[in-house]
Nucleic acid binder design. Sequence first.
DNA 1: CATCAATTAAAACGTTTGTTTAAGAGCTGA
DNA 2: TCAGCTCTTAAACAAACGTTTTAATTGATG
Lengths: 212, 212
Amino acid sequence: MSQLDTVNRILDAAEVLFAERGFTETSLRTITSTAGVNLAAVNYHFGSKKELIQAVFERFLTPFTENLDRELNRRESQAQLQLEDLLQSLYRVALAGLAREGRDPKRFMRLLGLAYTQSQGHLRRFIVSRYGASYRRFAGQLSDALPQVDPVTFYWRLYFMLGATIFSLSSFDAIEAILREDFGAESSLDETLARLAPAAVAMLTAPDVGAG
Amino acid sequence: MSQLDTVNRILDAAEVLFAERGFTETSLRTITSTAGVNLAAVNYHFGSKKELIQAVFERFLTPFTENLDRELNRRESQAQLQLEDLLQSLYRVALAGLAREGRDPKRFMRLLGLAYTQSQGHLRRFIVSRYGASYRRFAGQLSDALPQVDPVTFYWRLYFMLGATIFSLSSFDAIEAILREDFGAESSLDETLARLAPAAVAMLTAPDVGAG
DNA sequence: CATCAATTAAAACGTTTGTTTAAGAGCTGA
DNA sequence: TCAGCTCTTAAACAAACGTTTTAATTGATG
């Protein structure tokens, strides 16, 4: 087993277990025994548990933001500012790009949800410093497509949209199971994104009552 | 110090610390030293850490659902099915009711977010079994106010709405700090709810493209 | 084949965790 | 006043945690 094997086996196991249980609830012993490697391998290859967590996110977020940036470049050169298209860029191009590389987009959203809600200060700092530029660029193009919306209102709605997206997609399997039981209706991720995009657009473009 | 004092001091400390750090990241020793009581008091009065977590939620959710049920009763007797009013019931009556009883609605939303995202199976079961009826009743009235929306679409949008609400309100302080820095605009919870309600309405009533 | 660095392995480290125990204190009612 | 119950206290428990150490093993290079 080469070094690269060991590192990837650890990342694979950690990614699945973190998404299932959270960071604190997943011990290094569970990760290493699932991966079939020695306990000390984590500290040897990654340094610490914190750095392993960051590495798991790096493996997800780097291709994701690369896909997103490519799409934002394409859009910028064409000066298109269609709102629904922009969300489709986020939802389809970036997520489908992940899927094409063999990474589960649902697991990605689940991890992203954890990054927001589990109070891991180091992780938030890591993500902001590493991927904050792409996020601000996307938010900027989104804001440009909504010139009629007051900036403060826009940013609140951006967080509403993020919440709706991260929350529902990170709990996708649970919600899907409930709907399947109650309505016998199977839902795919693509189908859910096709529901989410127009709902998000409606929320972003709602008449601004100008609270405050 | 009476027994009731000890119990309440523990609940007060646990509520704040859980909301700040999460369940696993908060030790019983931190809770009891913050509360100024003996370590063993938690196991004596509550039985275990899990039951303490449930007790914290019970103290929040019981008055919240009571307020909500009262409002739903009032609406049912009047046969009003105005969508925006219904959300205002949830947002203002229930949350403002909490505030009137001295309980911080922001902390409540933060805890509710944790309940969804931190994988505490026992807590989810506790909440569903105890407060599921009120939730289904609210969802039912909301569904009745949207007769034109396909049931499966409705339920997905319900989760989108829950996500937007829980996510943005549970991170209220963090978001507010960012907006204050970037725009110098202070945001109150009431103001944010006044932004959230119409955004949620717009999302729920968006044209149903009928995905699937 | 011998050498040397990189990697793996097993074991132990010191902390921290939730929980339990056993003794003490404080109050109540007879 | 004293028995009896409730509650608090201090101490200890075993288990689990992340990390470190030291030795064995591997694989490439001279």
